[in-house]
Design a protein around this nucleic acid. Sequence first.
DNA 1: GCGTAACCCTACGCACGAGTAGGTATGCTC
DNA 2: GAGCATACCTACTCGTGCGTAGGGTTACGC
Lengths: 200, 200
Amino acid sequence: MLDAAVRVFSRRGYHGASMDEIADDAGISKPMVYAYLGTKEELFVACLHREGARMMQAIADVVALDLSADERLWRSLQAFLGFVGAHRDGWAVLYRQARGEQPFAGELTALRRRIVEVVVGMLEHTLRGEGREVTETELEVVAYALVGATESVADWLVDHPEADPEQTATRMMNVAWMGAAQLLAGTLWRPPNKRGEAPS
Amino acid sequence: MLDAAVRVFSRRGYHGASMDEIADDAGISKPMVYAYLGTKEELFVACLHREGARMMQAIADVVALDLSADERLWRSLQAFLGFVGAHRDGWAVLYRQARGEQPFAGELTALRRRIVEVVVGMLEHTLRGEGREVTETELEVVAYALVGATESVADWLVDHPEADPEQTATRMMNVAWMGAAQLLAGTLWRPPNKRGEAPS
DNA sequence: GCGTAACCCTACGCACGAGTAGGTATGCTC
DNA sequence: GAGCATACCTACTCGTGCGTAGGGTTACGC
């Protein structure tokens, strides 16, 4: 039922998808779709929520495990990339469609916010262990960078079906974690200060 | 003229924007829009090309400079984030709208491909200098990760107008470059191999 | 067998917006 | 000043697709 909607939305885009086609794909008629799931907008939101919840679940399952910081990150990346690999349609709906349409951008932002919070939590947890202090904004930017990097690689993965999600996760680690490891160790990169600018 | 189109597209989205509104915003009438810029689709492509070209130019200008690897990356990040900060509408059109719509996804993929190639070039150039060998795929994944991370941070920047693009670029460096620095130095993260999996 | 109710369909109304036809004003040529 | 071209607008046609009204079909009660 929702599956059909997700398929069609992912093929045609939100606007390109007609309720007729969704009904057709689901093997029922249009009024039934309206009876069960309401308007097109409600239907799309329902898809969004289900796919989003599934994704969060896949990640949360891994984060909940009691693992070392690096392995937890690696496993999360695997979970995320694995999920995207296995639910390409859902991913397309979530990230390629929802983002552009104002009515849904908010939903997506909320989802992403939850993911970022998970990542911030992981970073914070590790930092606490190391006894270092970092500002909230700092963490947020880093988390956004990690999440964005992973999303981008997920996109790449969708376009390269021959690639192995697990190996890709490992490659991600080679950028993300090695960078984060430096940060956690307190090594900072500083801009060259040639023109005598006053540091903030 | 195109400016008005970019504004409206960024506010309403591709489908949400009506030619009437674009004409109105531009201070002319609809037939004039058709006379000057053709159909809605052609108009959008024109916006895409202009904004894309501007962005590439902003980056290319910096990449062309003869700089050390880290400073070049940092300056590129600054150029990119600075551009996004200064052209939020254009960015919204490019990345939030074009991505979801099949007719334009190709254009965007091409643009992104060019950016990735620039990044791959930077990485390769540096690696050559270090005398190390890495596979093309490896580089591509890393480049996608960097580009994605930056796009994501750019999005964050759009939603946080109070943030300073330059400082944000520096923060990005703290993830991207410190990670890349490890890679360039040949330090690799390897997955824990608890369950006796055969390494590939 | 007939009423009735649950269920699902075909076929439509209606709004919206892309693209255009035909008219009007302003300036330029002779 | 008549003829003409250029620049622009108002007002329309027409397709498309969301949402629904009203009809057919099956199953059950009496």
